[in-house]
Structure formats: structure tokens, C-alpha cells
Write a protein that binds this DNA or RNA. Structure first.
Length: 581
RNA sequence: CGGGGCGUGGCUCAGCUGGUAGAGCGCUCGCUUCGGGUGCGAGAGAUCGUGGGUUCAAAUCCCACCGCCCCGACCA
């Protein structure tokens, strides 16, 4: 492609609202433009990267017998009512109404549609397993889109779904897809880590997220040298070794006035105590029943863990009036001491059913918590003597100083960008949508499903987060929009032009692509643009090199340039081609 | 949804103690220059987010709305 004819509007400055490195560079390099909040246009250069990634994904999925389909982006309400997600999905689901007042949504994902399609035309175990996938625009009406295409509302996702006759087969295929995902992201040239994940509202019992390691990532992951890796939303922790307290050092309980101090932070500062001494008291409604959850002051409660431990479907933070009804005070002053006898029956409240404490509280002595009295906290609280939870469990978000659940060594924390996720769905959707087969015993059973997503647009941003310097992008060759920047220095010099054309043709012959900068621009402009766009390899043809019958070769990632004899170009290109897997 | 900020050529921004719009970059033309955003000259390009109000006069002051961004909450 000749650059003079390519629609590539590069910018010297990034738009003001670009809020991270990758989106700034994508704007500047003429890959994307913004149409509205969280909605982007993809220009030719950007699209080429998307297509490169698509092709790698397609290749690896076809290799494991995946079959590509194309599913509607506008989906009828009725299907979403069948699974109950029309209600569950909330405002993130963009709903639209047609001229006949029929309701639809813009696809945020496609479990309903694909399951509907499969139930219609698959009825025998002999037709399974089946792996179907598509590339499709998805829309999720995020409250706050940010970081460019990393968290946009409209995005390109590869969503794949597998259907199985048995649980064993689904499990086997989960492993197959996991392997395919590892190959995909490896081929894309990314440094990534698959981590255990919570399956969230999509459902299912096993899930991994594929995280591109980057400090700017939104997700936090817990890692251990033993190989354990999990999203901190999911990460379990080993219980710290129990300590015993010297009975003579246990204080008596005492109330202290803490007017207007609701947070652990404030009270700790006020009492000049460490947050670890605090017993954070939270109320939840678990399937409508109030429960009390206790975590150490420096910890965050993990709602997923609590929900799983309680074995309930629905868990929500209790509203203020529940605190008032049970503890008799606002949220900031509730505490565990004699809480069960404090319950004050209200018209629309329920008795406290359970008190669950995090394991870490076993090692808190002379703790501080709310006094169940407005503007008051209690000090000197001790487990067993002053309060007794119904159960202990691991219910806090894994954090610094926590221990690995597998080997009990300290966990290490890193940030990552989630570029893909795999789920073992089980029968969640096949049951609600009655996607059944007759098995080999002539019994009607729901199919067992798996689902596998890759955020293609997000992967582009992740690659840039991982590959850039002060001058611009540095593409991994496999997903670069073009392999080469071909720069002709004196673009009106016929000899330079002829030699450039010769190199250009050689690149094409080698099965690769070059962006040929033959504009009538000064060398500086061309080099700056080339660095910005970040194609992995650069070949410069100028009268200077030409008089030795040479051109110049330079990798974007390296400072050093080499000279190539024009005659050896085809052979060199062959070597480079081999670097792309 | 709560708090804060911003909307002025394609991009970055100035003008905002009211008097009818400026710069740099980019773009066009000419000359110049030719290995890291060359220099000079000439030009094109703006309903100053929208609507209303105050005023002889509004980009500037007031009100409403819309859009965008940041922090938080929410969600995953």
C-alpha cells in the first residue's frame, strides 16, 4: 500500500479525552476515531489489526473443529425472557423497540440465540459435540466507558459456544479450548496469564480469564510461584496460622464516643490504632434473609465468596433500614457484640439469621467494632468471650500478605487486562431454553455447554499497552497491520523509487505487506510517522544507501539499523517471515 | 446516581472585568529544503454545543437543556 493514497490521518497530539497510552496511540496512529462515548470508528489501519487477530483466532478454533457462524446483533425479548436475563441484565442491556412495538435488545452476548439455534436443529447425542463461534459486534451499555476501546460500549467479540452430550465431554473440551486460547494469545505475541475466575452472572462452575499482564490493567490478579493464579475476585487464601493470646493481656470491653466517624479509616485514625484491629461489620440480604458478615478492618469483603459459602442465589448489601432494625444504629456503628439479642422487630424487616466471620478474625484480639449505638465504638472485643459467629469462612478479597490456598506461601499481586474468558456453563442455558437431546439410552437430557469469549478490540489495546515506547506503537509481527514500513527518502528520485518498488515487490512475493511511504515529505516526517505506527520492520531506500547498492533495515523494537544488499533482500525477507508463527 | 470539570476551525488551546474571533499544528498554492516533524510567503477553513434571557451590543453575564471527561457509587 502506498502511504500517499492510504487513509491514515496521523495526529501530532492526542485528543484531550484520551485517557490511557493505548487509546492515545491508537488515535495518533490513525487507527480509531470516537463517534460517541464508548463508541469507536475503526479506520483502515486499525481494522487490519482486528483482522489479523481474527484470523489467528479463526485458525486456532478451526483447528479444534470449530465452525464459524454469524448471529444476529438484534435479538428478540422473548428469548431473553426464557432465560430470565431480560430482567437480570439490567441497564447494561440496550433495549430497542421496532415500529410494531416489538421489543429487542442489542446483543451483549449470544447464549440465548445460539442455544435457540441449536435446540431447533440438534436432537441427538450423535450430532455432538459441536463448537460454534462467531465474530460479532456486541453492545454493553457500560455506566462509565473509559480507556478507549479497552472498556467501550460497542466492541468486537469472538464468542464461541460448545454443546456436549455429557459432562465428561464438556470437561474435555474445556481443556481443548483452554489450549487453543493459550496458542491464540501466544501467537498474538502477548505476555499473558490464564487465571481462575469467578463465573459471575454468565453462570457455570468453572472459569478462567486470560490476562495480559499490564500495570494499566483494570483487573487485579493473585499469583503464587507454585503456579496458582486467580483473579482477586475469586482468589482463595489459606488461613494464617492461629495465634493464641495471653489471657492477662485481654482487655475488658469499653465504649468510646466516635461522633460522626463511620469508616474504619476514620475511627482507626481517631483511636490511633491499626486497621487490622478492627472488626468490620456488614449486613447483607441473602435471598432476602439478613446475614451479618465480619471481616478484618484492613480487608474487603468478597461478595462472591460469601454468596458461595451461604449457598444462596441472591446477595445484596442490606439497606440502611436493616441496620437500624437489627443493630439499632446506622451502618458505621454496627458491631458483633450480643447482636442476636439486640434484634428489634420492625414491620418490614426479618430477624438476623446468621453471623459469618472471616477466618482472619480468629487472630484479632482486643478488637474494635461498632457498639450498636450511634456515634459509639467498642474496644477490647474478644472472640468467644464477647461474640461468637455461627461460622468462620474465607470471605475477604485476597490482598497483600495473604497466603496461597495451594501451598500457603505469600501471594503476589499483579494487574492485568482481561482479553478472554472461558466458562464451563453446564446446563444453565440448555435447561432454561430446553435445549435437549436424546442420549444413547434414549433418555431426554439437556446438553452440557461451554462458552468462550475473546475481546478482539480489547486485545488490540492490550497489545499496545504491552508494546510501545515514547515514540509510538511497537507491534508484534503477527498482528501488525503491515509487516514493513518501506520508506523512500528522496521520493522524486527515480532511482530511489525504482529500487523501492523492487523491495516492495519482494515483500509481496514473500507473502507479506508493506506500507510504502513515497510521500513528498521530509525524512523526519516519515520516520516519525513510521515510529508512531510501529510496524515491526522498517526498510529505508535512499540515494545514500543506493550508491552502495544497499538499503537499510531496522527493527522498530531496536535502536540499531543494518545494511542489506538489494540482491539479498528476498533471502532476508524469508528469514523474517519465519519469525511470524 | 452523587461530586467536580469542560464544550471556540480537523487537532491542541488562547480570548470570557461585554464592543461581533486568534495562535500553533494540520490543510491548499508557490518557492525553499531533503536521513529524525525545514524555512519563507500567500490562502482556505468557525452558525464560538443548543435554546432562551439580560443588554444599544453576548464567545464573554444569567437560566435551561444536550454532549464530553474525571473521581466515586454501580456493574462485570
Amino acid at each position: 500500500m502506498k502511504l500517499s493514497k492510504y487513509f491514515l490521518p496521523t495526529l501530532r497530539e492526542a485528543p484531550q479525552d484520551a485517557d490511557n497510552v493505548s487509546v492515545k496511540l491508537m488515535f495518533r496512529a490513525g487507527m480509531i476515531r470516537k463517534l460517541a462515548s464508548g463508541i469507536y470508528e475503526w479506520l483502515p489501519l486499525g481494522l487490519r489489526v482486528l483482522q489479523k487477530i481474527e484470523n489467528i483466532v479463526r485458525d486456532e478454533l478451526n483447528r479444534v473443529d470449530g465452525q464459524e457462524v454469524r448471529l444476529p446483533v438484534i435479538q428478540p425479548k422473548e428469548l431473553w425472557m426464557e432465560t430470565g436475563r431480560w430482567q437480570v441484565y439490567g441497564k447494561e442491556l440496550l433495549r430497542i423497540t421496532d415500529r410494531k412495538d416489538s421489543e429487542f435488545c442489542f446483543a451483549p452476548t449470544a447464549e440465548e440465540v445460539i442455544t435457540n439455534m441449536v435446540r431447533r436443529d440438534v436432537s441427538s447425542w450423535r450430532q455432538l459435540p459441536l463448537l460454534l463461534y462467531q465474530f460479532g459486534l456486541k453492545f454493553r451499555d457500560e455506566i462509565r466507558p473509559r480507556f478507549g476501546v479497552m472498556r467501550s460500549r460497542e466492541f468486537l467479540m469472538k464468542d464461541g459456544y460448545s454443546f456436549h452430550a455429557t459432562e465428561e465431554d464438556a470437561q474435555k473440551w474445556y481443556g481443548i479450548l483452554y489450549g487453543a486460547y493459550e496458542r491464540i494469545f501466544t501467537r498474538c505475541g502477548l505476555t499473558f496469564k490464564p487465571v481462575e475466575a469467578d463465573s459471575g452472572p454468565i453462570g457455570g462452575d468453572q472459569s478462567h480469564e486470560f490476562m495480559v499482564i499490564a500495570d494499566t490493567g483494570e483487573a487485579e490478579i493473585a499469583l503464587c510461584e507454585c503456579g496458582y493464579a486467580a483473579n482477586t475476585e475469586k482468589a482463595e487464601v489459606s488461613e494464617a496460622p492461629a495465634r493464641t493470646a495471653d489471657p492477662s493481656k485481654l482487655n475488658a470491653m469499653a465504649d468510646v464516643a466516635t461522633p460522626g466517624l463511620y469508616t474504619v479509616e476514620d475511627v482507626a485514625k481517631f483511636l490511633k490504632m491499626n486497621k487490622k484491629q478492627f472488626i468490620k461489620t456488614l449486613f447483607f440480604l441473602a435471598d432476602g434473609q439478613p446475614v451479618m458478615a465480619l471481616v478484618r478492618g484492613d480487608h474487603e469483603l468478597n461478595e462472591n465468596k460469601l454468596r458461595r459459602f451461604l449457598g444462596v442465589k441472591d446477595l445484596e448489601k442490606a439497606p440502611q433500614h436493616i441496620y437500624e432494625a437489627i443493630a439499632g444504629c446506622p451502618a458505621g456503628f454496627a458491631g458483633p457484640v450480643s447482636i442476636k439479642t439486640r434484634y428489634v422487630a420492625g414491620k418490614d424487616t426479618l430477624p438476623l439469621t446468621k453471623v459469618i466471620a472471616d477466618n482472619a478474625l480468629k487472630n484479632v484480639f482486643n478488637g474494635v467494632s461498632g457498639a450498636n449505638k450511634n456515634d459509639t465504638h467498642t474496644t477490647g472485643i474478644n472472640l468467644g468471650r464477647d461474640y461468637t459467629p455461627d461460622a468462620f469462612a474465607d470471605i475477604h478479597v485476597a490482598a497483600e500478605s495473604d497466603l496461597c490456598p495451594k501451598c500457603a506461601n505469600p501471594l503476589v499481586f499483579k494487574r492485568g487486562i482481561e482479553v478472554g474468558q472461558t466458562f464451563k456453563l453446564g446446563t444453565k442455558y440448555s435447561k432454561s431454553l430446553k435445549c435437549n437431546i436424546l442420549d444413547e439410552h434414549q433418555k431426554e437430557v439437556p446438553m452440557v455447554m461451554g462458552c468462550y469469549g475473546i475481546g478482539v478490540t480489547r486485545t488490540v489495546a492490550a497489545a499496545i499497552e504491552q508494546g510501545h515506547d515514547d515514540w509510538g506503537i511497537i507491534w508484534p509481527p503477527a498482528i501488525a497491520p503491515f509487516e514493513f514500513s518501506l520508506v523512500s527518502i528522496e521520493s522524486e528520485d527515480q532511482a530511489v523509487l525504482d529500487a523501492s518498488a523492487q523491495v516492495y515487490a519482494a515483500i509481496q512475493t514473500a507473502g507479506m505487506d508493506a506500507l510504502w511511504d513515497e510521500r513528498n515529505e521530509r525524512p523526519g516526517v516519515k520516520f516519525k510517522d513510521a515510529d508512531l505506527i510501529g510496524l515491526p520492520w522498517r526498510i529505508v531506500v535512499s540515494s545514500k544507501t543506493l550508491k552502495d547498492g544497499e538499503c537499510e533495515f531496522k527493527r522498530r523494537a531496536s535502536k540499531d539499523a543494518a545494511r542489506w544488499k538489494l540482491a539479498e533482500v528476498p533471502a532476508r525477507l524469508k528469514e523474517l517471515k519465519a519469525e511470524i508463527k
